[in-house]
Amino acid sequence: MKHPGTRHKARKRAVYLLFEAEAKGVKATDLVAERRELVITDESVGQIHPYTARVVEGVAGDQAQVDAVLSSHLKEWTLPRLPAVDRAIMRLATWELFNATDVDPVVIVDEAVELAKELSTDDSPAFVNGVLARIADLAPQVRAAAAAEPSTDA
């Protein structure tokens, strides 16, 4: 059996946070901040891995764009009709496909499928794979365009 790596665990925690935020109707970034405060007095909460924070903040910051991309790649489904955990997994993976240039798109899709196997329905892994494979085809162009844009950081 393959043992999950640190990034896999970080992604899984990010999915939990994205799912929880949607269920509670709160910002996922607020949950990250809350957990970082809570771990000071309650170690059972666990530290937030930097990659977890990075992807949660990324998804939260780009959620309208991420949801638009996802919605345009769903066939015979709408985003609100999907199981909430599948939405969280695919939001995370879509953001990573376009922004996590240090991770191969194939790895991102594989990780999302693994998360769907662990956390969702029996039909979810194939569905997640199909949607994300179509989105992954766009990743090289989106990454190249983002790299070509002048930085707005001052």
Score class of each variant (00 low, 15 high):
1 M>I: 06
1 M>F: 15
4 P>W: 00
6 T>W: 01
6 T>S: 02
10 A>K: 00
11 R>P: 03
11 R>Q: 09
12 K>H: 05
13 R>Q: 08
14 A>Y: 05
15 V>M: 00
17 L>H: 06
20 E>S: 11
20 E>G: 08
22 E>N: 11
23 A>G: 13
23 A>Y: 10
24 K>F: 07
25 G>I: 06
26 V>W: 04
27 K>W: 12
27 K>G: 12
30 D>V: 09
31 L>G: 01
32 V>M: 02
36 R>M: 12
37 E>A: 07
37 E>I: 12
39 V>P: 06
39 V>K: 09
39 V>T: 13
40 I>Y: 14
40 I>T: 13
41 T>L: 15
43 E>C: 14
45 V>Q: 10
47 Q>E: 15
50 P>M: 07
52 T>N: 00
57 E>A: 09
57 E>N: 13
59 V>F: 02
60 A>C: 04
60 A>E: 02
61 G>V: 05
64 A>P: 06
64 A>K: 06
64 A>M: 09
65 Q>I: 15
65 Q>Y: 14
65 Q>S: 15
67 D>Q: 13
67 D>I: 09
68 A>G: 08
68 A>I: 12
68 A>C: 08
69 V>Q: 03
70 L>A: 05
70 L>G: 00
71 S>Q: 12
72 S>K: 15
73 H>W: 05
74 L>D: 01
74 L>V: 12
75 K>L: 03
75 K>R: 08
77 W>C: 12
78 T>W: 09
78 T>G: 05
79 L>H: 04
80 P>H: 05
80 P>C: 08
81 R>K: 15
82 L>T: 00
84 A>T: 12
85 V>W: 02
88 A>D: 06
88 A>Q: 09
89 I>F: 03
93 A>L: 06
98 F>S: 02
99 N>E: 08
100 A>K: 00
105 P>R: 02
105 P>T: 08
107 V>Q: 09
108 I>D: 00
112 A>K: 01
113 V>C: 05
115 L>R: 01
116 A>F: 02
117 K>S: 10
118 E>H: 13
119 L>W: 03
120 S>V: 09
125 P>E: 12
125 P>D: 13
126 A>G: 13
127 F>W: 09
128 V>R: 01
128 V>L: 12
130 G>M: 10
131 V>L: 08
132 L>W: 09
132 L>S: 08
135 I>C: 00
136 A>F: 12
136 A>I: 14
139 A>W: 05
141 Q>D: 14
143 R>N: 07
144 A>P: 12
144 A>T: 12
145 A>E: 15
146 A>F: 14
149 E>Y: 15
150 P>N: 15
151 S>A: 14
152 T>H: 15
154 A>Y: 13
